[in-house]
Each structure stands twice: as structure tokens, then as C-alpha cells.
Design a protein around this nucleic acid. Structure first.
Length: 423
DNA sequence: TCTGGGGTCCTAGGACCC
DNA sequence: TCTGGGGTCCTAGGACCC
């Protein structure tokens, strides 16, 4: 029995989520902006038809968007995460094994399913069920490897005649599609590799599939070699149902305005560290290494630049917000310089351990401090309850550096006072 | 004036050891 | 002028993904 993977991908996900609760926007172009309302990260079909490109800085096309009556939204991550969870739970009810690959995509293992029902029928029914239960439209691509399933999904999106479902298990069909796809559309081939491959005469996905894997490995990498094999229907990437534990946690943001005062940076670093510590506890890990980074605006070459990124090792791995914040602030004090206009800062945690397993020296108590653990549990409980916020004084009350979200929609599904009311 | 955030994997090169 | 070889570990940087 040969493997069959499906890739289910939500269409224009963020824009679709915004439209779910705004039926008045049906037919109107929608764009969603990145944090700080920086650039375009999602577009509805109508917005794509207007020629609006992904990743364009908002300020460059703001006038055009107004002229075209485009609805503009700041990222509402709470909303998207909630809708995503609903879509994923439906997929998990209908497929034996599911890998949630990103907020809007999942791989399914459909091996053996084609003995019971045709893949086209299965794909169409998944689409219909998700749409009926969530209002979200998805496309389904099916093939013997993940890389081919990705391409099949892409075809399902691009060609309306497919009705959103493409079964690419037939080798002849694979060849036909690969010949139509530029190599840059292949999963794992980014802009740099595309350029190099094009220069070598490899233009289409079919050209890459026809390349010698050994040669590709020598000239490029083992990763691209695997891609070549996957394009030939040899499955090298397996379905990963268990989310692997994180190797690092990063919390960083660009500021709403440039920061020039130490007080503001102190608040920001405290906040980011607290958030990172919260994520760490969710992962049930402790961290031994913490680093911070500050950045001036690298796009503005006329300004003096300063981008320190100091790190420190903790004596014992910890998940205690207070210890991590104290370490971060020590690093900040040492690297802070007045006279720069800072644009962004962040905190990174690495070198993770399982709580209580660290081999400590004679003078430290291994296994963590039970009082600290209890305190952190209470902190997380209150902050996740929706009833209030408890934070360290260092995080500040002014928060005048916080990011801009001028076009934020309500938290329709995750905050009581924002639930839509039908009159 | 205005250019996201959070991840992964691989490789090369330096430090260090015997 | 000569001044080994091989292994491990760590870090930085580059590439990719959504």
C-alpha cells in the first residue's frame, strides 16, 4: 500500500476570518496588516485581483487602498487562532492522522483511504464539511509525498476547474503539473535557490525532478536532494503528529514609535521576558540561556546604528519570571546606550531542560524551588482566566512603546463583550 | 514618518582535546 | 624552513517556511 498525503490549506485565511463576522464585506477587497500595521500579510481574492502584492509596506499603498475601497485590518491573532482550532478539530474528526503544520494548513495521512472511497470524493467532502461548520473555504491537494501534495494544493487554488481538489497520485498527471510549475513554487525552494537553479538551466519543477539527486546533494544540500526525491513521488518527509518540543522561544516586537529612553526599553524587555517565560512554562521546560537584542532602524542608513545582542547563562535552568527578568535587565543595563533611536527589541530563551532533571552542583538546590513554582502557577492562572492581569512592576503602566494596531477588529470569539449581537 | 514575528534545519569554521 | 591528524562541541550565519 503506497503512501498518500493530503494538504488542506485555508484560502486567504486571515482575510477570510475577518469576513466571517462582517457579511457586509462580501465581495469587497480585504487586506490584513502585520504587527505594527507594517506591511500586507494577507489578501482576499478581490484584493489579489487588484494586484496588491504580499509583503508590501502599508504606507506605500495606503492611498491606493483607500481609492479602491479596500477594507484594512490589523492582525487579530486571537481571532485567527480560535478559528484555526475549529478547522483543525474538524480535520481530526475526519482523518485518521493529522499534522497541524501552520495556523492555516494541515497534512493528513490518507494511506489506504482510496480503497474505500475515491480521493476526489474524500477531498470534496472535507471541503464541504469545513465550510459548513466554520464558513472557511479550504483547498485539498493529494499525492504520494508531502512536497507533491503541496504542489497539488497549489494547483487546486490556481485552477478553478479543479473545484478546490486535486488528486495527484497518477504519475502522468504529476509530470504534466510539474512541467507547468516554475521551480520557485516548489516547497523548500526560496528566492536564493531559485536564482541559482535558474542560472543552471533548471526552470520548472519538472527540470528539478529530472536532476540527479547525488549531484544536487554535492552542489546544493541534503535538503534539496530530499526535495528532488519527493518530487519523484518518493516520500522522504513523514507525517509528524506530535508537535516536537521547542528548541528556542523568541519574543520580539517593533515599537509603535522609536524608543530613546531607558525607561521605555526597560518596560519592553520586562514585558517580552515575562511573555517568553509564560511560553516556556506552557512547554513545561526550563531554560538555561537567555539573550536579548536591541535594534535601531537598519533601513535608515543615515541614522547611527547600534544592534547589541548580549546573552547570559543562568546558574540553574529556570522558568521563574522573576529570575529571567532579573537576568535580562542585567544584560540591558550593560549594553544600553543613550543617543540612539531604537526600533525593535527582543528576548530569546534557549538551552532547554526538563524541570527537575538538571544535574546541579553542591551549593544549588536542584529540582526547582516549590514556592517559585506555586507562584508562577497562580500568575499564569490569573492571566489566562480573562479576569485580570498580574505583572511585574518593571513592565510599566504607560507602555507608550506598544505596537500600533489602528485597524483592529473585535475579539468576536474570545472575549465576552465582543461577541456579535443579532438584533 | 511609515518595511512583521516566530520558528526550523544545515553547514562552516573555530576552539579544544588527545 | 620545518611545525600531524582526527574527533567533538559550540556558535554564527544562511537558507527556508508560514
Amino acid at each position: 500500500m503506497s503512501a498518500v498525503f493530503a494538504l488542506v490549506d485555508c484560502n486567504n485565511f486571515y482575510a477570510s476570518c475577518e469576513r466571517l463576522f462582517r457579511p457586509d464585506l462580501i465581495g469587497r477587497p480585504i487586506v490584513v496588516l502585520s504587527n505594527n500595521d507594517g506591511c500586507i500579510v494577507a489578501r482576499s481574492a478581490e484584493a489579489k485581483a487588484l494586484g496588491i502584492k504580499m509583503g508590501v509596506p502599508f504606507h506605500q499603498i495606503e492611498r491606493y487602498l483607500r481609492q479602491q475601497n479596500v477594507a484594512v485590518f490589523s492582525s487579530n491573532y486571537a481571532l485567527y487562532a480560535d478559528i484555526s482550532a475549529r478547522v483543525m478539530s474538524i480535520l481530526e474528526q475526519h482523518a485518521p492522522r493529522v499534522e497541524i503544520y501552520s495556523i492555516d494548513e494541515a497534512f493528513l495521512d490518507l494511506t489506504g483511504v482510496d480503497a474505500i472511497v475515491s480521493l476526489d470524493t474524500f477531498g470534496a467532502s472535507i471541503r464541504q464539511i469545513v465550510r459548513q461548520h466554520t464558513g472557511i473555504h479550504v483547498c485539498v491537494g493529494m499525492a504520494p509525498s508531502k512536497t507533491l501534495a503541496k504542489l497539488a494544493n497549489h494547483a487546486a487554488k490556481v485552477y478553478p476547474a479543479t473545484r478546490g481538489v486535486v488528486d495527484l497520485t497518477d504519475p502522468v498527471r504529476q509530470q504534466r503539473l510539474l512541467a507547468l510549475m516554475p521551480v520557485s513554487e516548489v516547497w523548500g525552494v526560496g528566492p536564493r535557490l531559485s536564482k541559482r537553479l535558474n542560472a543552471e538551466g533548471i526552470q520548472t519543477a519538472l527540470d528539478l525532478a529530472a536532476a540527479n539527486p547525488k549531484t544536487i546533494r554535492q552542489q546544493y544540500s541534503v535538503v534539496l536532494e530530499r526535495t528532488v526525491r519527493e518530487l519523484n513521488g518518493e516520500s522522504c518527509l513523514s507525517l509528524e503528529e506530535m508537535t516536537p518540543t521547542k528548541q528556542q522561544i523568541i519574543c520580539s516586537r517593533s515599537f509603535g514609535q522609536r524608543i530613546t529612553e531607558y525607561r521605555q526599553m526597560h518596560e519592553a524587555i520586562c514585558s517580552y521576558t515575562s511573555r517568553a517565560a509564560e511560553k516556556l512554562r506552557q512547554e513545561r521546560r526550563t531554560a538555561r540561556r537567555l539573550s536579548i537584542f536591541l535594534r535601531t532602524n537598519r533601513f535608515n542608513t543615515a541614522e547611527p546604528q547600534y544592534m547589541p545582542a548580549p546573552g547570559a547563562e543562568l546558574p540553574i535552568p529556570t522558568d521563574d519570571t522573576r529570575e529571567l527578568v532579573a537576568t535580562a535587565i542585567k544584560l540591558l543595563r550593560a549594553c544600553w546606550k543613550d543617543g540612539y533611536r531604537y526600533m525593535k527589541a527582543g528576548v530569546m530563551l534557549t538551552d532547554f531542560h526538563q524541570p527537575g532533571t538538571f544535574q546541579s552542583d553542591l551549593f544549588n538546590t536542584a529540582g526547582g524551588n516549590p514556592r517559585s513554582q506555586a507562584l508562577m502557577e497562580v500568575l499564569d492562572h490569573i492571566n489566562q482566566s480573562g479576569h485580570g492581569q498580574v505583572f511585574l512592576a518593571g513592565q510599566g503602566m504607560q507602555r507608550d512603546w506598544n505596537m500600533q494596531r489602528r485597524y483592529l477588529s473585535p475579539a468576536y470569539t474570545t472575549r465576552w463583550q465582543d461577541i456579535p449581537v443579532v438584533r
